[in-house]
């Protein structure tokens, strides 16, 4: 294992985060605060409790997931796409490192950044609503697994993307709608029965449900399903990355 190389990639990526602090950290925090003000305080004051939790608190897990999913995906995809775009990827390919070490470096940094932002939003939420966490260890574990899984997905997108438009395509057209429709702002039980069934095909439902269970001790779907969903998703990403490694897809000619 080339630990120095992993550390070099990780540090280099984290340095970019801190160099672009406004764009990387402050902007997601600001947009989340706006959600709290609009949905939590303004509209939320007119909504009764959902599943015995005040609406403002109810949307906290969904909001964290919304940001964390988008951030981990876009960070990791940009992290590997940028060297491809400016040509510095030659260094990664000619260095004595394995593809897995490259993945650990980039995905590790992207997941760390998303995790940090998730925690910052969690702290920010306390300024707007009262929160008590039912299962703190599970909450951290869920958040961590989500960050890593979606950073893996982002890495795959970064390898696949041929231009900046494609880079934005999946986060914008797939992830954001899935999160919005995955119960970020409502409980699945609030939907008509047909939509409840359809929603079960949305993988993000399981993530948000599991995460919400960690917060409030209640969930839309059983915890086991949530854990299974994240494990299957991560396995699929790892399998795809393994395939990219074996074939050199879009990396080595």
């Amino acid at each position: 294992m080339n630990w120095n190389a992993i550390a070099a990639i990780y540090r280099f990526e984290m340095a970019r985060t801190f160099r672009t602090l406004v764009q990387s950290v402050i902007s997601p925090v600001l947009s989340t605060s706006l959600y709290f003000i609009v949905f939590g305080a303004a509209i939320g004051s007119r909504i009764d409790q959902v599943e015995g939790v005040s609406y403002g608190a109810f949307i906290v897990p969904g909001l964290i997931m919304l940001t964390v999913l988008t951030q981990s995906t876009s960070n990791a995809s940009f992290g590997i796409y940028f060297p491809k775009f400016i040509g510095t990827v030659y260094e990664l390919l000619s260095a004595p490192i394995s593809f897995y070490e490259i993945v650990i470096g980039y995905v590790g940094a992207a997941a760390t950044k998303a995790f940090m932002i998730g925690m910052i939003i969690f702290v920010t939420a306390h300024f707007f609503v009262d929160l008590t966490i039912a299962h703190p260890v599970w909450m951290v574990l869920f958040l961590l697994l989500t960050c890593i899984s979606f950073a893996l997905l982002g890495f795959i997108i970064g390898i696949w993307a041929g231009n900046f438009e494609q880079l934005q395509l999946v986060p914008m057209l797939v992830i954001t709608p899935l999160v919005f429709l995955g119960g970020s702002f409502y409980s699945i039980s609030m939907l008509p029965p047909v939509w409840q069934t359809i929603t079960l095909f949305n993988p993000v439902v399981y993530l948000i449900s599991g995460f919400r269970w960690a917060f409030f001790g209640q969930a839309d779907v059983a915890l086991g399903w949530s854990v299974a969903a994240i494990v299957v998703f991560m396995a699929a990403c790892l399998f795809t990355i393994g395939w990219i490694f074996r074939t050199g897809y879009k990396l080595r000619s």
Binding site: N2, N4, A5, A8, I9, E91, A95
Partner: peptide
């Protein structure tokens, strides 16, 4: 520094 790190040094 980044390049040196990549080569495991």
């Amino acid at each position: 520094r980044f390049s040196r790190g990549l080569f495991g040094k």
